[in-house]
Amino acid sequence: MTRATRVLVVDDEHAIHRFLKPALEVNDYEVLSAGTAAEGLKRIAADAPDVVVLDLGLPDMDGKDVIARVRQWSDVPIIVLSARDREAEKIAALDFGADDFVNKPFGMGELMARLRTALRHRMQRKGETPVVNIDGLVIDVARRRVTWEGTEVSLSPKEFELLAFLARHSGRVVTHKQILTAVWGPAHEHDTQYLRVYIGQLRQKIEPKPADPRFILTEPGIGYRLLDAA
């Protein structure tokens, strides 16, 4: 690696920059700061950050619009900072192409973990891995095989498609709409009841304790997250 990983923090609150900067720097990130959406967009274009931490509440532009604009020409991972009570906004942000979100207020440990996941996926996307191994749960996308600690798990085609989609985004949250559109097609993007049923069936088949899921985690009101491949 020729240069340090670059993080762009876009937030209008001075206080956020004030503690993020030293904490990120000490973890060998190069920190870029922007106080407005316009400045943030400019810096993404000019400085090519490796990952963006974006506050949704910016004074000059809606955070969702910022994501939409960035996605027109860049697939830089975007982690959204948002208040817990703004579920709808978060879902919209994810649908617009954000990679993950962190609720405010947050601990630094959580933010760092999300940053790492996002960055790893950026690497993976460059060389797609057909086999995902999560703590003994092996998903072979190309051969359509799933094994749990060596024994094969039998899945229906839809169940497999659903698991494969989650595996492709392992470690990241995917919204109901994204899953439904990808697996069932755009006509079913609101049929969350399908999803609930299939997620339940999947958990019965792959989770050691389906009532206390380990692999497929629920993000209440937003979507699901498959445990990150270690």
């Binding site: 609150e13 206080a15 956020i16 004030r18 503690f19 993020l20 030293p22 904490a23 000490v26 973890n27 208040a83 009570d85 405010k104 207020p105 947050f106 601990g107 630094m108 440990g109 933010l111 760092m112």
Partner: peptide, 26 residues
């Protein structure tokens, strides 16, 4: 809730930074 959250986010962020990375910080 917003007004409280911003300072709380800073306090939590700063405090967790100190906890996790305190030894590495200048």
């Amino acid at each position: 809730s917003h007004d409280f959250r911003t300072p709380l986010a800073s306090i939590l962020g700063a405090a967790t930074s100190l906890i996790y990375f305190g030894s590495k910080l200048s």
